[in-house]
Design a protein around this nucleic acid. Structure first.
Lengths: 132, 132
DNA sequence: CTGTATCCAGTTCGATACTG
DNA sequence: CAGTATCGAACTGGATACAG
């Protein structure tokens, strides 16, 4: 039986998917695809993100070599973030995944609805159900 | 300034990346790419997974319409899992991402090493550091 | 402006025991 | 064989306060 996958490689892909599959990384990468952006502009663009999470997200991307951080020693301080070439190249597979998601989003939603319908009721919360 | 991204769409992609970016989904999908597989065979193939996590992973994939679950009413019970067409089609963008990861894995590792080296020491644990 | 530090709630996941 | 139930540790992310 031929194997079309390599477990170790899949684990590596999993790790990367988890890394950029966190709550904000993809959005930040796509925003930075438009060009260098200041911290405060990113904060405004990524609606709903906390200062802490933006910092953590950018640090993680920087650590992976996807984002370059440039500090201009002015006062007040000015820090710009931009995609490295590596970061730019990551946009391709991200958009491949994005294309798939949008081509199939309806089908996924339908599948979920049907699954939930089929399993409704048979797993009611025991703390609430069967009161009478 | 032209925007090359749509925040709402990025969020949707994020969600899907998180979904399949969990600890086991990609590996399970790739294994199922070889054909229908029984629960116990999956358990053996996915080295290190717990019974609980295999069940949860398969349920989530089934709910998204990526995996079909077939129960043969024999004794002892026999349950087979296989990719749906939707699940098969997901292998493409996954492999696109996988290709990117392997083309750039060395570069990522180097970036991390360099980042960690540059930031080493300057964040030593205050509870331990500077004892003398 | 650009962060860091602290605290806390919610989620994820592994270990283990039990069931039809 | 193919699950489900329960528990606890570790991780994630938000709110808030503080700092260079």
């Amino acid at each position: 039986m031929p194997k079309h996958y390599d477990p170790a490689k899949c684990q590596t892909v999993c790790e990367m998917l988890s890394r950029i599959g966190d709550k904000w990384s993809v959005l930040v990468i796509m925003i930075l695809g438009d060009g260098p952006t200041r911290f405060s502009d990113l904060k405004r663009a990524v609606v709903g993100i906390s200062q802490r999470m933006l910092t953590l997200t950018l640090r993680a991307l920087e650590r992976d070599g996807l984002v370059r951080r440039t500090v201009y020693p002015t006062v007040p301080p000015r820090v710009e973030y931009e995609l490295t070439e590596l970061g730019q190249s990551l946009r391709e597979p991200i958009q491949a995944m994005g294309g798939w998601v949008f081509r199939n989003h309806d089908q996924i939603k339908d599948a979920r609805a049907e699954f939930d319908a089929r399993h409704a009721g048979e797993r009611a919360d025991p703390k609430v159900a069967r009161l009478g």
